[in-house]
Design a binder for these strands. Sequence first.
DNA 1: AGGAATGCGGAGCCATTTCTCCGCTTAACC
DNA 2: GGTTAAGCGGAGAAATGGCTCCGCATTCCT
Lengths: 218, 218
Amino acid sequence: MTTPHRPAPGKPKALRRDAAQNREKLLRAAWEVFAELGPDAGVEEIAGRAGVGMGTLYRRFPTKESLLAALSDEILDSILACFRRAAEQQPDGRALEQALWDTGAVLAVRHGWLTRLWAAIPPEADERRAELLTLVDDLLARAKHTGRVREEITRTDVYAALLALRVLIDDTEGQVPGVWRRHLAIVLAGFRPAAEPLAHPAIDDTLIRANTPARQAD
Amino acid sequence: MTTPHRPAPGKPKALRRDAAQNREKLLRAAWEVFAELGPDAGVEEIAGRAGVGMGTLYRRFPTKESLLAALSDEILDSILACFRRAAEQQPDGRALEQALWDTGAVLAVRHGWLTRLWAAIPPEADERRAELLTLVDDLLARAKHTGRVREEITRTDVYAALLALRVLIDDTEGQVPGVWRRHLAIVLAGFRPAAEPLAHPAIDDTLIRANTPARQAD
DNA sequence: AGGAATGCGGAGCCATTTCTCCGCTTAACC
DNA sequence: GGTTAAGCGGAGAAATGGCTCCGCATTCCT
């Protein structure tokens, strides 16, 4: 929030003050509008709410998708923050779990259009996606070390758990809050060491690499 | 498939033979087209593929949504079939698990547009939804009885697991098949009795009643 | 202060996609 | 076989919603 806009290495072109302000206003309005009307809300509504014209909107964000991308970018940052914080502040045994609980809470704020937002994650986010992955690996290793998570569990399992979290929040949070917490509790129970091994082998990293925002229908 | 069309108690009006045939052709074409182009495929493609005109399509299905509804109706039937079969053929300890594995396999065939399909489940399906719920209760009770599932687990937990299954299949099956199996294995492990109780209390039935196909943005 | 580059507004353009209309055909029943 | 209600095709109406264009205003740098 304090950081005005990512100083992209490729295009360090500074924005004029009014332009930067409008960019911010647009983002704020977009959060608001989407939260209220869902991700199918028209661009006109957003421009209106931000108090700027369509021209301005489209100069700042050349396409509606890129506006979504900017928002999903912020979400990704929040998630990353959850994991970083947990890595620093929590004891090894709890860090992974804490990160997941926090992530759920962060996502819950945007319930109803998370899936759409997810699909808009831009390719430029790859770097931070990688960092997130590193953090997952780290926390996972630590959790295994303290015996809170069984050895079999992989980063992909955590990734899948995140996807499950997303859909539960998206589909249920608006009607009966907290369902995601319950499911997360169950998944975490499934993560714990147990006599009986899991009934299906681990999935390799292909998923995480391949599952860049589903270009669903192509 | 053998049943031509549900003999709805309200409108027993029989369809003329050609009309019934075209209805069938349309449904078949719709499955095909959506599987190929995703749920955003235009109606024109479907009519074309079915070898009928737009007029026919819209006489049979007064809106695109109602066409989707007919398809999701068939999916619901498949799921129900999985649960019925498991209830009959499996020993108590395994029936619930078997039902979930089978359901996953059935859903996997439609990966990529399950979410959209889910959202189109018509209100008329309430009766079968109720039957599904009864089956879940039954299988759950049996699984608890044999000690395969901990007492805390509720029907809502199973429902949530189904939602998770849906998103995993939808988002990953097209890229790396089988991810859903792994997650289901973990969730089932979480269902099993364990020393440590779940970290979140059960969610009551409100969810299942409220979560009729998310009229997301309203 | 002055002047150029940068930014602004918002009425319409355009592509897409759902759905309707109506003259002709076909199945069903006596 | 004849009558008629039901069904058919497919061009195009209507609605939706993303995006563009261009004359005028604002900012920034010297």
